[in-house]
Simulated assay, not measured.
Amino acid sequence: MPTAAQRDTAAVGERSAHFLQPTGPGSFELWSTGIAVALLGMLHTGLNGRLAEIDREQYVFPEMAEQIADRLRGVRLEGMDDEIAGELTARMQSVNNDRHLRVRRATAGVSDGSGDWEAHCAAEAIQNAGGMRSVGRLDSRTGLLEIAPYTSPVHMAEGHVAAAFALLRGVERLVIDVREGRGGTPETVALICGYLLGSRPIHLQDLIDRAGDARQFWTSPAAARLPDEVPICVLTSA
């Protein structure tokens, strides 16, 4: 587990969103770390150039951004929307295997502003219980917490996280299953770790934006945290 002396640095894109007005059927979303961009109603032939433009403007590594943009140049987009999203994702990830950078087809309405995006996140936090997919006990002494599909923004997830650990109170060992987790917000990760990593604040990670500015994330030990002697097993996927 990371400590203050074990600095774990991660690079992310700028936390902003840009939206295009719809001009016809079909909606795509570009997702990167901290970036959600709606590409509404664009013809398939226009997606490549717009994705390359967004990539150059916002991707955290400018030198990689040019290489990724080159990989998008001249791609023939054929097939169903999901296939097109998959092809664009494969192209964008092919340079440095950044799995945070992906394109997906929007199956429902796509937000067209920050207010709508807040409402979208709030609805998903309710639907997904803030990322606390399930909580229970394998036996009288062993707790199980499944975190998926991703953790919601901390102010939307806090109540769900507190409820989950209230149900886990008294366990003598804990299994955390993140095999179907796809990530989430670092503030919520820090909140969860505050129930797990003891009575002293722990430095988890730094997030560095394109300008080189860093944000530190530390645990804030929760009053209802697990006792230090409780062993924790974490299940992860490849």
Rank of each mutant, 00 (worst) to 15 (best):
P201D: 11
R104P: 05
H155C: 05
R56W: 05
A164I: 04
E87M: 11
T219D: 07
T9P: 04
E29H: 01
L145T: 02
N128E: 12
L77I: 02
S16M: 12
S199W: 02
V189C: 11
R7D: 13
A190N: 04
A5Y: 13
L167G: 08
W218N: 11
T9W: 06
G86D: 09
N48M: 05
L168A: 10
T23W: 09
L235I: 05
E66H: 08
T188E: 04
H203Y: 07
G49H: 12
P201M: 09
A211L: 08
G198E: 13
T236Q: 10
P186G: 06
T236D: 03
L47P: 02
E124W: 08
M156Y: 06
V189R: 05
G130V: 05
G170C: 01
E29F: 00
S152Q: 09
M80H: 08
G194C: 03
M1K: 06
G136R: 09
G74F: 07
D116W: 03
P22S: 06
L174R: 01
V161R: 01
L174G: 04
G115D: 08
D98Y: 02
Q6S: 15
M42F: 13
V37E: 03
A69F: 04
R173V: 05
L138M: 11
L30F: 14
G198V: 06
V161F: 01
G46S: 13
A164S: 14
S32G: 15
M64W: 03
P25D: 11
A36H: 13
R169H: 10
I176A: 06
V12S: 10
V175P: 07
G109H: 09
I126E: 15
E124D: 09
A163F: 09
G86L: 00
R73D: 14
A224E: 15
R102M: 03
Q216E: 14
Q6N: 13
L72S: 08
D70G: 14
L20G: 03
A157S: 12
A163S: 14
D55W: 04
G183R: 00
V75E: 14
A17Q: 08
A125M: 07
H120E: 14
I54W: 13
A4F: 10
L145G: 02
I68D: 00
L191R: 10
F61Q: 14
A129M: 14
E14K: 07
T151Q: 04
M80L: 12
T107I: 14
E57L: 07
A122Y: 00
A11P: 00
V95M: 04
C233D: 12
L204Q: 01
A223W: 00
T185W: 03
R133I: 02
C193R: 02
V12T: 12
I176F: 11
R50C: 04
M156E: 08
A17C: 09
E53S: 11
G183V: 03
Y150Q: 11
D177H: 10
L72Y: 05
R137L: 08
S27A: 15
R137C: 03
S237E: 13
A119I: 07
Q93I: 03
L101D: 01
A148E: 13
L43G: 14
L88R: 00
L197T: 07
L207H: 10
E83T: 04
T219P: 01
R105L: 07
V171Y: 02
D70H: 07
P62M: 07
D206S: 15
